[in-house]
Design a protein around this nucleic acid. Structure first.
Lengths: 254, 254
DNA sequence: TCAATCCTTATGTCCGGACAATCGGACTAC
DNA sequence: GTAGTCCGATTGTCCGGACATAAGGATTGA
């Protein structure tokens, strides 16, 4: 006797719009993701085989596979050869993204504000020149900012950028994040190298962040590269650990 | 007059072994990655179009695309429609992995050692029970370890695991990392939620880590899940910031 | 009763082709 | 000279099929 074979995707009302400019695999992936998010696809449930799903939607199997693969890459699904594709139990948040503190705070529901303390052109030190890939002594932008949320200082941010990349208007720096300015200038961010550590606050930092001297600070140094491999930014940030921590999700590499 | 059309992959001696059980796309990806690593493919150079590459290797275009895509996902290549596929300039290190401190130290050339301070079964507190998905008061393993490298303390690690998942032998805990034990027990790690912060050392921590009381410590809390969604481990770690920091690379999402 | 084997099922890999979208340069018109 | 247009090149998307491989259950044998 064959078992009932309840395919949870059968009752989901999945459909794709071939007239849309949105790729078919992407439409499907979005609908599946929404179904998982809303609990229509319960964790642990099998998805029903790809062939059938493709036939039901009038798609080819490669297209369905591409959709499923994108969700596997996101950590929402797990495939098992000979078994099927399964919804992962654990609730996934987004993995660590190449995002700015400003955006992080904004999505967390805070209303971040910035106070620009320094915005000037300075000659690059040897270390900085090496990191940014410019010649020593060449002009670089130096930006020092204090980031606040609800009037309380969150972080003290020191950034250096190669000169000539974009014009850094103090007003715009106060209104938004640095990453958004870079993107608006036509720079496509590609990757970043980060280092997260901790150290005691210097007296200057302590005063700006309203902490005691020697208080523990969470630190982050980051070099950001665009898709041509140029270093476009080097930042050294100090966060108040009582107000900020780095939360993220990791996925095992296949 | 047609331009020279120097395709750097033409002189690379790429070839695939159809008798091998390793997938063709994977063979190609490995060879391309090696070529990039060794500098045979210089940053910024175009790769030559997929059709030609496929023809030269006797492969189909989808297979070549799959190989290239895997390297794009790794951040080694960038594709541009209408232009071509380009080697990224910036040197990539590995992105942040789901790895244990033990493995991290080992690959960094250190010879880590562990000292197990506590290895016992304790009733789960309400918080811990919620995190691990067990009932409050149920038995859980509690493991406290001190991790050292070159005889110096690096981190103080407190981990909790659901009982019955695996037998935690103190000797084996001292000989290797917790993640390796989990994998050996047939548990396939899938994802983890992490939070990195900082705080001042308590007197007990200070003594174990040979720091002063109130010294800044780098902290990490992590819940690890297997591929069925079960929480398999919750860890609260404290690192000496002078000896350890979290270094990793981020890729922009698509 | 237990173990080895076969069979079903589902994903993994691979093919060859087709058309669309986009980029960049060359060309043309003003 | 400058702006708009056209066109070739290249990747993006999609199709329909084929066979291989692994996992799990059912069957068979000892």
């Amino acid at each position: 006797m064959p078992k009932p074979q309840v395919d949870p995707t059968a009752t989901l009302g999945l459909r794709v719009d071939r007239g849309s400019p949105v790729p078919l695999y992407f439409q499907l992936a979005q609908q599946l993701e929404a179904a998982i998010e809303q609990g229509a696809l319960t964790p642990g449930s099998l998805l029903g085989n790809e062939i059938e799903l493709a036939a039901r939607l009038g798609l080819s199997r490669p297209t369905v596979r591409q959709a499923i693969q994108s969700l596997v890459d996101k950590g929402l699904l797990v495939r098992r050869r000979g078994v099927g594709t399964q919804v992962v139990h654990s609730r996934v948040s987004r993995p660590l993204e190449l995002s700015s503190l400003y955006d992080d705070l904004e999505t967390a529901g805070q209303r971040p504000t910035s106070r620009v303390l320094v915005n000037a052109l300075v000659p690059a030190s040897a270390d900085l020149a090496g990191v940014l890939g410019v010649t020593e002594g060449a002009d670089v932008h130096r930006v020092e900012r204090l980031r606040l949320a609800h009037g309380e200082p969150i972080a003290y941010l020191v950034n250096h950028l190669p000169a000539g990349l974009l014009d850094l208007d103090t007003d715009r720096l106060e209104a938004t994040g640095l990453y958004r300015l870079l993107r608006c200038a036509g720079i496509t961010l590609h990757s970043a190298r980060q280092s997260i550590g901790a150290r005691a606050a210097t007296s200057a930092e302590a005063e700006r962040l309203e902490e005691a001297e020697g208080a523990p600070l969470l630190t982050m140094e980051r070099t950001t590269y665009d898709d041509t491999g140029r270093a476009v930014e080097f930042g050294a940030h100090a966060y108040r650990p009582s107000r900020y921590s780095f939360d993220f999700q990791l996925l095992a590499r296949s």
